[in-house]
Design a protein around this nucleic acid. Structure first.
Lengths: 351, 351
DNA sequence: AGGTACCGTGGGAGCGCTCCCACCGGTGAT
DNA sequence: ATCACCGGTGGGAGCGCTCCCACGGTACCT
């Protein structure tokens, strides 16, 4: 079907050279047209584009990658087993945002799971080979060595959920502080005054920020912060149960609970019910994440929604910017880039 | 940290040449060692491996791809929107099998969604650029042009669920015929004699095969096939409802139903209950897929399990074989390759 | 002794692209 | 008229690898 050149190899795909010959120009000029350089006359550009169309030319990615030292691919690294990836809507939403933003570019997305040691090993090899121009890191634990590896290899990377206030990587986060504030302010506006907080794991930065938001919302409203009303949880349902029991034991007069996650709120709800407290009449309850649980709880749970899809978009924007000026923010003393996206309080019957 | 060569470029990754110099051998020899060629003496191999380790050499994928005309990557193409991908455990299981099998190789897996037209467009471009050595196709509709595109581009491909008995692509399938047989035989062994079948969409080959299995199981057991007991459905719950109503109207004495999918079985169950039939006392019910629905139905549904994870493994095996001898089965008159995996009847209270 | 066979090895010739420098002709300043 | 300049262009020199041919050496045959 296609015309064969001097000696065509596999399938005889046309090369830049052949397009150039066809268009009656030089190789460099075709390259310029393909890559959208402005330094080409309109007439020449048209001729080249015609030749490209006629020959059905498609650039050879490998050759380009070799010559230009870039891959036009980025990886979304998920340091979790596949199972969790599919189970949690978080990843699905994130992927949607990432995919949407990326579809405007020529970049290609790779999904890499690094749950097991074996997979981590592979990933390290993969990164060492510089097979991607940049990396998106989601759901990273505080002690994960991956960010450092990335920095050492000087691979541009963006992390979702900074590991600390001093995060060195470019990061995207939702406004945990503001989200917590809005939850507490909402409870205050409903006339609640003895508002407890069940925190997430405090080695997770976002959980800390939620505590900060809780504290300052109370202080700014002229209330004191009663440390007995702050009870550490661990993001699990069982943790929520334990925390709620403890709170009830210490402060039986509690009239509202702000839980650091919907799952913990579910645990708290069980205990409240067991103790005969009616939600929201006796105790108002607010969660965090606005997950499916929140909608299906009885009563439906007021919760703080994070704009996960937008976080995905934002991560891509930042990563592409970083790739564009080939200097990972970590390797030079550049200003740190970061984005913080607003949350939204979704009100339901529990408060 | 690493020693820099003459003039190191970006990060100064060592090249084959540098490894060769270090090991005191030629470039070709290092290449042979890296690629596991047997035509290297043990002493030389050891020396090269030492040099590789010392320098932390990692092959440059782009250069290799360009020179060898292969990418060491394959794509899993999902012609569905992301949403469905995450919603259905089918994909998750498939991916697990694929990932497991692939982790034994150097191959890299790409996940490509082609739900929207825009995404299809991108995919076509992607394939035309031969950016993967092979393609895994899952959940393909009968009229999808993708298989033909693949054949035309001479890209090795394996499809899960052949489109017809005359499928030209290498395929992997579960034993729909045998699965249906086992369901019917099971019902017969329970003393049921008026067994109905609610079929899937009959333009899906697998659904046809299930009908075949239903028919022949009855015939082989010495029963006649009553066409009034075969009612077409469409894989949806509503379709299952409609089919069940129709069946009940035509043959009120039906004592068992074999549905072509769990979802349709769920629809049938609703109707049976509405009509006051007790499962399994009055009517026994068997589904297909052994999905989550089956386990959670009331009563729990007997269903035919497909070995999806193994299908994933099998697809990889076949694809790698096809890539290995660079001849897509479609472009030459080679014997068709295909694998058919056994199903398993999972018995529960509904039958 | 010469021939033939191989094995292990070195290195040239590309793969198809980007990058960059040199070059061309037309302008405007001197 | 001379020169510097600049937009537009051609093509050489690689990028780091694989492929393959040629080569020296050893072993075995005649």
């Amino acid at each position: 079907m296609a015309g064969h050149g001097a000696r065509s190899r596999s399938g005889g795909r046309p090369t830049l050279e052949e397009v150039a010959a066809r268009a009656g120009v030089g190789r460099g000029t075709v390259s310029r047209v393909i890559n959208g350089s402005p330094r080409v006359s309109d007439a020449t550009r048209a001729a080249v584009e015609a030749a490209v169309a006629e020959l059905g030319y498609v650039p050879n990615t490998a050759a380009r990658a070799l010559a230009a030292n870039r891959t036009d691919a980025i990886a979304l690294v998920v340091p979790e087993p596949e199972t969790r990836f599919f189970a949690e809507p978080y990843f699905s939403d994130m992927l949607k945002g990432v995919g949407a933003e990326l579809s405007e570019t020529e970049m290609q997305l790779l999904l890499i799971f690094a749950g097991s040691d074996r997979e981590r090993q592979r990933l390290a090899q993969y990164l060492a080979a510089h097979r991607v121009d940049g990396v998106l890191l989601v759901s990273v634990h505080a002690d994960d060595p991956l960010p450092d590896l990335l920095a050492q290899l000087e691979i541009p990377a963006v992390i979702s959920g900074p590991r600390s206030a001093a995060e060195t990587l470019t990061s995207v986060d939702s406004d945990n502080y503001g989200g917590a504030r809005s939850a507490v302010e909402h409870l205050l506006s409903r006339g609640r005054t003895r508002i407890a907080h069940i925190t997430g794991r405090l080695d997770v930065y976002g959980a800390q920020r939620r505590v900060d938001g809780y504290r300052e919302a109370l202080l700014d409203a002229g209330h004191e912060v009663d440390e007995h009303l702050i009870q550490p949880g661990d993001f699990t349902e069982e943790g929520g149960r334990r925390a709620m029991k403890e709170l009830l034991a210490r402060r039986p007069d509690v009239d509202a609970v702000f839980a650091g996650s919907d799952v913990m709120a579910a645990g708290a709800r069980q205990v409240l019910r067991e103790e005969g407290r009616v939600i929201p009449d006796d105790v108002a309850l607010v969660g965090y994440d606005d997950s499916a649980i929140a909608r299906h709880m009885d009563p439906p749970l007021t919760s703080v929604r994070q704009p996960i899809e937008e976080m995905g978009r934002s991560m891509i924007d930042l990563l592409l910017a970083e790739i564009a000026d080939r200097r990972p923010a970590t390797s030079r003393g550049l200003e740190r880039r970061q984005a913080v996206l607003a949350t939204e309080l979704v009100m339901r019957a529990s408060s």
